[in-house]
């Protein structure tokens, strides 16, 4: 297993980590089911690919624009979530994923089923970034995304999202504008997914609609749930575990999906808080006591 291969896996883990953290803002913090996160991953990737290839814009300008595009369409889904709730919303987001991938697939503008080739590796001050530095850059973005997520969870915004997740009627009665914050959660979460798409497009340099299809959304959801929904460490460790493990265990390659599916079933059945969530048995074992009692040492 060469260094180049490890770098590739590392970069993909970073991209998935950003996806899982950003989905967690929508589903973990704000409690809104989203099974179409890969669509925004795709919007970011396609936006950046087209901006750099067709308009000749540089990576560093295209990236924030792509983020904004994904965030704006995410906000639209946020608006939809005001009317469609719960299970209906979950199915709607599957549908949105499906429709957006179809647009990529059947429109010549987006390169059709063959996707877009020849996407450029980014440059910094005119110098092409090497693979190793690209990984470092991705790690940096994971750090930024995690910091953003941490700030949200520690702020009034995070409190408002928590209230909406727990009980919308009570949140409204407590003066929280649920509509506004749901839209904010979707916009922010999807914008970060867009950034992950940018990083993916310029790393792979070749994207197809299938890279952003519904199964990818499920993978992201699974990473978040297996790690521990609602926490920050959960999605990061979940992405690390689920993106890296099947790659590192090459003999398992043929059983990759079996392993994924099995892991999801076992986790949801026996450890729905996730491996690293609050009350998770691994954390209890590592710490020797419940994380809850640790956090509330006062009582």
């Amino acid at each position: 297993m060469g260094l180049g291969y490890l770098t590739t896996i590392g970069t993909l883990v970073c991209i998935y980590a950003i996806l899982a953290i950003s989905l967690n803002i929508i589903s973990g913090y704000a409690g809104q089911a989203s099974l179409g996160h890969a669509a925004f991953f795709g919007i970011g990737a396609y936006a950046s690919a087209l901006l750099t290839l067709k308009l000749g814009i540089g990576f560093w300008v295209a990236a924030p624009l792509a983020m904004m595009a994904a965030g704006a369409i995410g906000a639209v889904v946020g608006v939809i979530s005001l009317r469609i709730k719960g299970d209906f919303l979950a199915v709607t987001t599957i549908g949105i994923n499906f429709v957006i991938v179809t647009v990529f697939e059947y429109s010549d503008f987006f390169g059709g089923a063959y996707g877009i080739m020849g996407i450029q590796y980014p440059t910094l001050f005119g110098v092409k970034i090497s693979k190793g530095y690209y990984l470092l850059m991705c790690l940096g973005f994971v750090g930024l995304c995690a910091l953003f997520s941490l700030l949200v969870s520690k702020s009034w915004l995070g409190l408002a999202l928590e209230a909406i997740r727990e009980n919308e009627a009570a949140a409204e009665a407590s003066g929280i504008n649920c509509a506004k914050f749901k839209i904010i959660a979707f916009a922010f979460g999807c914008a970060w997914a867009g950034l992950a798409g940018v990083l993916f497009a310029h790393f792979m340099r070749f994207i197809t609609p299938n890279d952003f299809a519904f199964p990818i959304s499920i993978t992201i959801v699974a990473m978040m749930v297996v790690g521990g929904i609602g926490t920050l460490r959960g999605p990061i460790l979940g992405a690390l575990l689920m993106a890296a493990l099947p790659e590192l265990l090459r003999p398992l390659a043929n059983y990759r999906l079996l392993f994924y599916g099995g892991l999801i079933v076992l986790m949801t059945r026996f450890q729905p808080q996730g491996l690293f969530g609050d009350k998770a048995f691994i954390l209890r074992m590592l710490l020797g006591r419940g994380p809850r009692s640790m956090r509330h040492s006062g009582d």
Partner: peptide, 9 residues
């Protein structure tokens, strides 16, 4: 949540 409503909204 309710105490910070003005800050939040």
């Amino acid at each position: 949540v309710a105490l910070g409503h003005d800050r939040i909204s």
